[in-house]
Amino acid sequence: MQIQELLQIAGIGVLVAVIGQILTRAGREDMATLTGIAGLAIVLMLVVTLIAELFENVKSMFGLY
């Protein structure tokens, strides 16, 4: 359940890095930075949902409203 998201994020990270390298080799540095930023945005979305789930869990367990 949480492990899939972990591996997903690792995969996206490595993939974005590889695509960035390919794009820079092809001489399109601007595209490379854009893909980097896009990849980071996707990863941050995944991380935010995971953190939200963790905070909800802790809040409900410890009575923190």
């Binding site: 998201e5 994020i9 990270g13 990863v43 953190i51």
Partner: peptide, 11 residues
Amino acid sequence: HREMGAAFSLC
């Protein structure tokens, strides 16, 4: 990817 590493360790 440096920034991704920080997001990944947080996750």
